[in-house]
């Protein structure tokens, strides 16, 4: 009995002494931090994806609190909603940004792009890219070893078993840009998500002349320039035998898709083309939803008849 008593007394007194010491130490070494940082951090998604360019969500919160305005500060994972909340909390104006999504610009599935060699090494695009152009004749295309999948903290990208190409999940992708940095071939790009997730882009990054490009891959951009001539908005540029559609200028008229001889330009989430009157309605809806500058809307309206 005595032993129990002594134990209790000694342990409790030890606890009390240590608590007092800890209290004073905590007082002494207290770091004064803006309480708003915690507040802002709580509003952020907490994924620490680094898409904002700061080390983790807390780093971003810190930057937001210290900044005079939210210009250039944007949490891609949380999107406008989060940024509005942050802006409200800090009493600043939010800078709205068009929602974006990662786009894989390669459509070289095995049936389009014949394999010409076998890569034998670690499952890493970066290592394979340091070794050679890849196991097909296209030295620009996707290697399919999944560095982007590895980089994604949101589980938003996976390699399709049939095509061997990465697929981005419409819902999960937050456009943090981790996959863009991870891809050694610079195939993935962040593009505006577009109304109703409708997007048009050149799904190829092959900079070879038409001949070799076409030989390596059936759906390669051969740099013929037809889309450039067709585009009514000057949204398409051709450089190094490769067309690129500027997503800021593109009005989703889909004319380029029709003229592309190799099918390298891809349209996503559009309704089927055949029932034409329906399509008109859909597009009209889009226009209403557009909150772009008035001038843009005018151009778009004028484009409408052309589209038909």
């Amino acid at each position: 009995m005595e032993i129990v008593l002594y134990t209790l007394i000694s342990l409790s007194s030890l606890g009390i002494i240590l608590a007092v010491i800890l209290f004073f130490v905590a007082q002494q070494f207290k770091v004064v931090e803006d309480p708003r940082i915690d507040e802002v951090e709580a509003l952020l998604p907490g994924a620490n994806c680094g898409g904002c360019g700061y080390p983790g969500c807390r780093g971003f919160a810190d930057a937001c609190v210290k900044a005079d305005s939210l210009d250039g500060l944007f949490c891609p994972a949380g999107g406008n909603e989060t940024m509005n909340a942050v802006a409200k909390a800090l009493g600043m104006a939010a800078v709205e940004k068009e929602p974006q999504i990662a786009v894989v610009r390669c459509a070289g599935a095995p049936e389009q792009r014949a394999k010409t060699s076998i890569y034998d090494g670690p499952q890493s695009c970066a290592i394979a890219a340091a070794l050679y152009g890849g196991d097909t004749d296209c030295p620009y295309g996707c290697l399919g070893l999944g560095d982007c999948v590895e980089a994604c903290t949101f589980d938003a990208i996976y390699i399709d078993e049939n095509t061997g190409l990465p697929v981005v999940s419409e819902e999960k992708c937050t456009a943090c840009g981790a996959c863009v940095t991870a891809c050694p071939k610079d195939i993935i790009e962040l593009r505006n998500k577009g109304k109703k997730s409708r997007r048009i882009y050149v799904s190829c990054v092959n900079k070879d002349k038409g001949g070799p490009a076409k030989k390596a891959c059936n759906v390669a951009c051969i740099g013929c320039g037809k889309c450039v001539k067709e585009c009514p908005f000057d949204a398409i540029t051709l450089e190094n035998f490769l067309a690129y559609i500027d997503y800021e200028k593109c009005k989703l008229c889909r004319k380029c898709v029709e003229v592309c001889p190799t099918g390298a330009i891809i349209e996503l989430n559009f309704p089927p083309r055949k029932p034409k009157p329906e399509k008109k309605e859909e597009n009209a809806d889009n226009e209403k939803a557009e909150n772009n500058a008035a001038a843009d809307t005018v151009i778009e309206n004028t484009s409408e008849p052309k589209n038909e």
Binding site: K115, T116, S117, I118, Y119, D120, G121, I127, A130, L131, Y132, D135
Partner: peptide
């Protein structure tokens, strides 16, 4: 037959 390619 396709050749194997690997690093040294």
């Amino acid at each position: 037959n396709r050749l194997l390619v690997s690093m040294s």
